[in-house]
Design a protein around this nucleic acid. Structure first.
Lengths: 99, 99
DNA sequence: GCCAAGTTTGGCAATTTTGTCAAATACGAA
DNA sequence: TTCGTATTTGACAAAATTGCCAAACTTGGC
């Protein structure tokens, strides 16, 4: 496994390793949303949300398109549900016993 | 989705969001290994590797057992290959075009 | 008991990530 | 063009993560 490849993979993982970004990913799994829509969901400054989205887009998780004044974001990968199922499974198990 | 649950999920994701930890996970997918074995693989200080392993264990990705003076670590979840396949797919796609 | 090998823990500086404000940009409507 | 809404970018302080060293455990063999 090449170093550059591992770094890309880590960048992909880090892009979801944040509460707001994980919630954004879940929301986009249900359909396209604007930056404002997502801010209403996760809170915080609009510029913060915009930066989260840039990060996720650079990593490859999401795509965007312009629609009037808005920028609509949507999932770019079909494997998110599978990914989340795996995470959920482990999260439930680890919260049972934090020894 | 509850706040505590999201935090647990983020902890699980973060546990693989590091080059050394991702390589450790891949290595353990092939079988049990000691801390020393893993240090030989990823380099760095032994204590650093040990801390990575503690983090991954707390998150729920791995388990360990004592065997003489050694501590043998192994994967605790079956979904790692699925997880990695998803990450690889996105990593390959995003490295095509970093616009 | 004592020693050596293997591992973990505590402390701490260096680096990276995060969030907010202000300013800049993009676009449609009047 | 000018205005108003939507979004992005730059700068910077606060917070979290990382990696190394030294010291502390733990276990098996003598």
């Amino acid at each position: 496994m090449q170093v550059a490849m591992v770094q890309d993979q880590v960048r992909v993982i880090k892009a979801l390793a944040h509460p707001a970004r994980l919630e954004i990913a879940r929301a986009l799994a249900e359909g396209e949303k604007s930056v404002g829509d997502l801010q209403a969901l996760v809170g915080g400054d609009l510029s913060t949300v915009s930066k989260h989205l840039t990060l996720m887009r650079r990593a490859g998780w999401i795509d965007c398109r312009k629609h009037g004044q808005q920028v609509l974001y949507r999932l770019a990968c079909a494997c998110l549900p599978t990914f989340l199922r795996c995470i959920d499974e482990i999260a439930v198990r680890s919260s049972d016993c934090d020894c």
